[in-house]
């Protein structure tokens, strides 16, 4: 089986269950609207129309408008964009840095390894909310900062898995064979071990996407993340709350968007995990 065929087989397996299918559909919708936001929106998300505030769903405003009369549908679409950007950059950098540090930990001597593991432990024992509060107090809220905070808190996660995976492969015959032809440790790690541990790490990353989406929304909701007027699902919910007595629609649609996206990525992540994990192969039983 070539790598291409292997990928095709994995996709086929993801789509073999209802969870995978639903998850994939949701992801395609969310990611698609994030990428093509300017094309799919009906209004400028920041255009005010005070006269039309809290108008319910209508032909002009599919989901109605918010407290300043902005089109809720368009703001939701741009909110997806923010959520995806944060998820992409946060998880991407956590994945890369975590994996490299994890592999480094596995290659260091006992003391160096313990030191890195302690760093991982300290970071993950630090609640991301507290970290966010502290950092925002110093630098003020911004999207970049949310991304950085999420990346740092997720990094040890990948670090530990990468280290464990590398430890199991360190004495694999093919690694030994590379040492025997004289390959350097860096070469062995990057061109032989990394391709073999990438799979589980990518699965882990996909399972972390919904976590990141909710963290971003949560931080934005309490005012530590994305700053108004930029639309984020968190700020949408926050704005909606302030005017809950005037209209429930903004809170409901923004929360629904958040819930559906989270569900979609969770279902997809689980289907992907099952698809690449032969131990969960149900056909053999």
């Amino acid at each position: 089986m070539t790598a291409f065929a292997a990928t095709r087989a994995t996709i086929a397996r993801i789509l073999s269950g209802p969870g995978g299918i639903v998850g994939t559909i949701i992801i395609v919708l969310v990611v698609g609207s994030a990428i093509f936001a300017p094309l799919v929106v009906t209004h400028d998300p920041d255009a005010l129309d005070i006269l039309n505030r809290f108008s319910g769903p209508s032909a002009a405003h599919w989901l109605g408008t918010d407290n300043l009369g902005r089109d809720l549908y368009s703001r939701l679409v741009y909110g997806a964009r923010v959520a995806m950007m944060v998820a992409l950059f946060a998880i991407g950098s956590a994945l890369v840095v975590g994996t490299l540090l994890g592999m480094l930990a596995a290659s260091l001597n006992a003391r160096g390894e313990r030191l890195l593991l302690i760093v991982f432990d300290i970071i993950s024992s630090f609640p991301s909310l507290v970290l966010a509060l502290a950092v925002v107090a110093v630098f003020g809220p911004s999207t970049a900062l949310v991304t950085a905070i999420v990346a740092v808190t997720l990094m040890p996660h990948f670090g530990r898995v990468a280290r464990a995976q590398m430890l199991t492969l360190r004495h694999a015959p093919f690694v030994e064979a590379e040492r025997l032809i004289g390959a350097s440790p860096v070469r062995i790690a990057l061109s032989h071990i990394l391709p073999n541990i990438a799979g589980p790490l990518v699965v882990l990353a996909s399972i972390d996407i919904p976590v990141v989406i909710t963290i971003e929304a949560g931080l934005s909701f309490i005012g530590l993340g994305v700053r108004p007027p930029l639309a984020s699902w968190g700020t949408l919910i926050y704005d909606g709350y302030a005017y809950l007595s005037d209209s429930r629609v903004p809170v409901i649609v923004a929360s629904a968007a958040l819930a559906i996206a989270t569900l979609g990525f969770t279902l997809f992540g689980e289907a992907l995990r099952d698809a690449v994990d032969p131990r969960l192969d149900r056909e053999g039983r």
Partner: peptide, 9 residues
């Protein structure tokens, strides 16, 4: 190495 298949990356 003994296990030739496993000794190839």
């Amino acid at each position: 190495l003994q296990d030739a298949v496993a000794s190839l990356s």
